[in-house]
């Protein structure tokens, strides 16, 4: 991967990126592009759909069919694209606020439906674009611009949410472990069904500086030190796992996929699409 050429996949004219120095989102974008390259899909058949927020600016930089929608609604728009043309490969780019606060309903129902979308959820535990407000994944006790005394709400396990709601593939990786992350994304792309890859991505600018982690290096090291593989996590107690990031493939099951089932219904009824 040292010499990987990203340029065929990028709209370099749109650079520089909107993301701040030290942000993990560029690392996640590169992990996605390497995964797409290994899978070998044609750019014309790829659709990248996003909502609103820092991560949701990604579609502007990649040379696919790209759709930057309204806050929280990437999954519904993507559902429409996929149903209208199931031959398209549809990737949803979203963040913790976009997918699990304002868009939480769509996130769980897409998982229940098991429609063939690959959701890459960049979790930076904060609303970055609007200046650092508390999000559903801000850890307890951490500060945000709207949690000046420390967050006292419980935070979501958003991978667990997707698993419980019926997603056929769920994995968690980090911007620190970019090689593994890219492997999870590759598996997710190839999975026929709703797949979620939660990518832990640091936000030094508006999360770190409020929480005594001003330096990006510190934040990456923090992610690294707190990451535990799913295998190792199996040997640890719940108390030990408190505040840990469990990485790896969390769910990988076979179940009927929505657009495939719909196609069968059309065939049964004698319709032709």
């Amino acid at each position: 991967m040292e010499s990987f050429d990203y340029s065929p996949y990028l709209r370099e004219k749109k650079f520089p990126l909107i993301w701040c120095a030290g942000c993990g989102h560029g690392i996640v974008m590169k992990a996605i592009l390497r995964a797409i390259d290994r899978v070998g899909w044609d750019r014309d058949d790829m659709v990248m759909v996003s909502g609103i927020g820092c991560s949701s600016r990604m579609p502007g930089y990649v040379d696919f069919n790209t759709l930057h929608t309204t806050h929280g609604r990437a999954i519904p728009f993507a559902t429409g694209v996929k149903m209208a043309n199931p031959d398209l490969h549809v990737i949803v780019i979203t963040g913790d606020g976009d997918a699990t606060a304002i868009g939480g309903n769509h996130y769980i129902h897409a998982a229940r439906r098991n429609i063939d979308l690959t959701v890459v959820l960049l979790n930076n535990s904060i609303y970055g674009m609007t200046g650092g407000q508390v999000s559903p994944t801000t850890p307890k006790g951490k500060r945000a611009s709207t949690a000046p005394f420390g967050n006292f709400e419980a935070s979501f396990n958003i991978s667990g949410l997707a698993e419980a709601a019926g997603a056929s593939f769920v994995a968690r990786g980090t911007a620190y472990g970019a090689v593994q992350l890219s492997k999870y994304i590759e598996k997710a792309l190839l999975k026929k069904g709703l797949s979620v890859v939660e990518a832990i991505s640091p936000c030094p600018t508006v999360f770190g500086r409020r929480n005594a982690m001003r330096s990006p290096v510190e934040m990456y090291e923090d992610i690294h030190e707190n990451s535990v593989s799913v295998k190792k996590a199996g040997t640890m107690t719940a108390d030990d796992l408190e505040d840990k990031i469990i990485t790896g493939v969390l769910t990988d099951i076979e179940k009927p996929e929505y657009t495939t089932e719909y196609k069968k219904l059309i065939a049964t009824l004698g319709g032709s699409s």
Binding site: V49, R73, P76, T79, G80, N85, H109, Y262, L265, S272
Partner: peptide, 30 residues
């Protein structure tokens, strides 16, 4: 479905509106 089209009951009104925009971009009258 009997005429080869697609119907979906979404989880809410907002997503139904989003889905028809996505489908239209993919070429379907929505």
């Amino acid at each position: 479905p009997a005429s080869g089209g697609k119907f979906i009951q979404m989880e809410d009104e907002i997503s139904a509106m989003g889905a028809i925009i996505g489908a239209s971009l993919a070429g379907a009258k929505s």
